[in-house]
Structure formats: structure tokens, C-alpha cells
Amino acid sequence: MQYDKEVDARHLNCPLPILRCKKALNELQANQVLKITATDPGSKKDFDAFCRQTGHTLIEMQEAEGVFTFWLRKRSQ
């Protein structure tokens, strides 16, 4: 999947992956895609809740060998 910016939040615990995500989304234009990698098992529910609360779209989530990868589309303004 194509993306416009990538954030590596591996080995960071809550709330740092979400905070890094928010910072990166602020640097993107509407409808651009952010890829985030994280290892915190709680990040699955955290990113789902974050998107529901903020209006961003969780396009896809993948898990492989303890690494979670999320693709989020920034909401249109």
C-alpha cells in the first residue's frame, strides 16, 4: 500500500505511538496516508479508538511477528 509518511513507534508504550501518530498527521494534507509500525499490543485498540474519535480512517491493520502495522488516512478538512 502506498503511503505519504511513515512513523516507527516500535518499542514504545502507550501513549507514545498515538502521540507520534498525531504529530505526523498534523504534517500531512487531507486524505494523505500515514503508515505506523508499533509493537505495543494495546496499539490495536488504541488506534481503532483514536480513529473513531478523530474522524481519521483506519484503512488497514496487519500483524506479523509481534509488529503491528497501521495505515491511516487523514480526514478531509
Rank of each mutant, 00 (worst) to 15 (best):
C51R: 05
T39C: 11
G42H: 05
E6I: 14
K45R: 07
T69S: 13
L28T: 07
M61P: 03
C21E: 04
F68R: 13
P41K: 11
N26H: 11
D46H: 06
K23T: 10
K74A: 08
D8I: 03
K35V: 03
G42T: 05
P17M: 06
Q32D: 05
S76V: 07
P41A: 08
C21P: 04
K35R: 15
F50N: 01
C51K: 04
F50S: 00
K74E: 08
K45Y: 10
C21A: 15
L28I: 07
V33N: 07
L16M: 13
Q53G: 01
L16S: 11
K74D: 11
G66A: 13
P41G: 09
F70C: 08
G66L: 10
S43F: 00
K23P: 02
E60V: 12
D46R: 02
A24S: 09
G66S: 14
V33L: 12
P15T: 02
F47C: 04
M61Y: 11
D8F: 00
R20L: 14
L58A: 06
H11V: 09
K23Y: 12
A30N: 05
C51S: 08
I59N: 03
D46P: 00
D48H: 12
Q32A: 06
K5D: 08
I18S: 00
L72C: 10
A24C: 09
